[in-house]
């Protein structure tokens, strides 16, 4: 057995492998999906380029393959890795089905509720090895939730996956934002209580996101699709539970929470963006984006950033990254306060 410090260092070094794996898989999906006609249109560009969709499938594949390899070479907790892989895999399946069949908006939150069940089931089979129902609170200690905690796991996975799904309106916004969140949480885990499995999973998520971000950044050459967005959100939710970073993850996801909350508070139902009659933003003749003047348009985070005046897509994405840096810093402070 390696001493704990070495185990953590080895976990981070091994997780770096997910960057080239994700890069290669994204490139593969770009070629295959282009040939098969799985294409989306980048509506925020004047030229309306056709971009291969569902390339985000590279991320769940990477974050399932790498932990499996890590367990096979004797590192990490097999039950933790299995729980994580089942959650991410099932969310990816829901996303892929939605990408191909274009389900109604209500089905995604309902089906992603089921994605949290593997953690609940494994938690019942292996008590105290999967999740800990004692919620750690910054400054004020902790409290035990033996009944509510397991019941709220499916809801947590559904919320994180769908809220991540909703904040990917512009090139690289989701991939870059989640990379920042993962980096902040990885640093937090490293400076507080580094369990090698959790360090590995956070590092794996970070580097696989960066691999995908290379092709997804402005101007995008690959779109994530629901398969990527839902699985990444589910990965964040699963890690929050498995790594005992529940409250910290909520703080890190402030930009997503704001975006989803204002969207739902205005629209008052679960619906797909393409099904909206009033869009939150409009494309101007000079290629800049402006806030919609339609009073029925949803109040998304992007629209909030455009209230003052129109801006280029790349500027808005940079601003979103700045917001993720702020929420990431607050998450890090929260983690230090929890101790």
């Amino acid at each position: 057995m390696l001493p704990s410090g070495w185990e953590v260092t080895t976990a981070v070094i091994l997780a770096i492998v997910s960057f080239p794996v994700s890069l290669v898989l994204t490139r593969f999906f770009m070629q295959v999906n282009s040939k098969r006609g799985i294409i989306g249109i980048d509506v925020h560009k004047l030229t309306k380029p056709r971009i291969p969709e569902m390339c985000g499938a590279a991320i769940p594949l990477t974050v399932i393959l790498l932990p499996s390899a890590y367990v096979l070479i004797g590192g990490g907790n097999a039950i933790t890795m299995l729980a994580f892989s089942l959650v991410v895999g099932s969310a990816a399946i829901v996303g892929a089905v939605d990408d191909r069949l274009k389900m109604r908006g209500i089905y995604k939150p309902l089906l992603t509720l089921l994605c949290g069940l593997p953690i609940v089931a494994l938690g019942l089979l292996y008590p105290d090895q999967v999740y800990n129902p004692t919620l750690q609170v910054p400054i004020f200690g902790s409290f035990h939730l033996p009944v509510i905690y397991p019941l709220s796991i499916p809801v947590a996975i559904s919320v994180t996956s769908n809220t991540t799904n909703m904040l990917d309106p512009l090139n690289g916004a989701m991939a870059g934002g989640v990379s920042i969140i993962s980096a902040a949480l990885l640093i937090g885990v490293l400076i507080t209580d580094p369990a090698p499995s959790i360090v590995f999973l956070y590092a794996c998520l970070l580097f696989s996101m960066l691999g995908f971000f290379y092709f997804n950044r402005y101007p995008s050459r690959a779109f994530a699709g629901n398969v990527g967005q839902l699985s990444v959100g589910a990965a964040l939710g699963a890690l929050a539970i498995l790594g005992r970073t529940e409250i910290v993850s909520i703080v890190a996801m402030f930009p997503q929470i704001q975006n989803s909350f204002f969207f739902l508070s205005k629209i008052k139902r679960f619906t797909e963006h393409h099904a909206l009659t009033a869009k939150p933003t409009k494309l101007l003749d000079d290629g800049r984006l402006a806030s919609s003047s339609d009073p029925n348009a949803p109040l998304t985070l992007v629209r909030t950033l455009l209230v003052g005046q129109p801006a280029k897509e790349s500027e808005i994405v940079s601003t979103i990254f700045a917001l993720f840096l702020i929420s990431g810093a607050l998450a890090l402070i929260t983690m230090i306060l929890i101790g």
Binding site: T319, A322, L323, L337
Partner: peptide
């Protein structure tokens, strides 16, 4: 962007404090 980020920073810090 600076104005938008500053206002969002205010919102996030207030919400963070209230959450704690």
């Amino acid at each position: 962007n600076q104005r938008a980020v500053a206002l969002q920073l205010l919102v996030f810090i207030t919400q963070w404090g209230l959450m704690i």
